[in-house]
Amino acid sequence: MLERLALEGRIDRSYVGRIERGLENVTVSALEALAAVLGSNVRELFAEVDTNSSRPPPLRSGRKPKGS
């Protein structure tokens, strides 16, 4: 999932991994790219998780075709 998120967001995979582990100060442009891939807006990335809500659908697996 991490690799797919990075590919679709055009962000370095290792950078996304460091964000996930809390080792990076994420940029606004990276937040915007991640939110776009996830089909949400940046504000939703900071919302508290409702434990009663359903999980979002997973991203498609596999690599994005070259030239896309």
Rank of each mutant, 00 (worst) to 15 (best):
V28S: 04
R43K: 10
F46R: 00
E20H: 05
L34N: 04
S53V: 04
A6G: 03
R10W: 03
G67V: 06
A33D: 15
Y15W: 09
D50K: 06
R10P: 00
V49S: 12
E24W: 05
A47L: 07
R4G: 04
L2F: 07
G62I: 07
N41D: 14
A6W: 05
L31M: 13
A47S: 09
I19L: 12
I19S: 04
L45C: 03
E32T: 01
L5F: 07
P65G: 06
S61W: 12
N41C: 05
D12T: 03
L31D: 06
L5C: 06
V37Y: 11
D12W: 03
L2M: 11
D50N: 11
P65S: 10
E8I: 01
L7K: 12
E44V: 00
R18E: 15
V37K: 11
N41M: 07
I11M: 08
V28T: 08
G17I: 02
E3Y: 04
P65D: 09
V37Q: 13
L7E: 14
K64D: 12
R63F: 09
L7R: 12
D12K: 07
R21E: 13
P56G: 09
R21C: 08
S14I: 09
L34H: 06
R43G: 05
N41T: 05
S68P: 02
K64Q: 13
G67M: 09
L31W: 03
G17S: 13
V26W: 08
Y15V: 07
R18G: 06
R43W: 10
G62V: 08
G39A: 14
E32V: 00
L34G: 03
K64N: 13
L7D: 14
R60E: 15
P56V: 07
E20V: 02
S14K: 12
F46N: 00
L38V: 05
G67T: 07
L59D: 13
L5S: 03
D50G: 04
P58H: 14
E24I: 07
Y15I: 05
V42G: 01
A35Q: 04
R60S: 15
S14N: 14
Y15K: 04
G9W: 01
R10G: 08
D12H: 06
R60F: 11
E44L: 02
P65W: 10
A35S: 07
L38N: 09
T27W: 04
S61R: 13
N41P: 01
L5I: 08
L5Y: 06
S14T: 12
N25Q: 14
R21F: 06
E48F: 00
I19W: 04
D50P: 01
L7N: 13
T27L: 05
G62R: 11
R60P: 15
E3S: 06
D50V: 02
E20W: 02
L45H: 02
I11F: 05
K66S: 11
S40C: 15
R18A: 10
V42K: 00
F46C: 00
P65L: 11
E48Y: 02
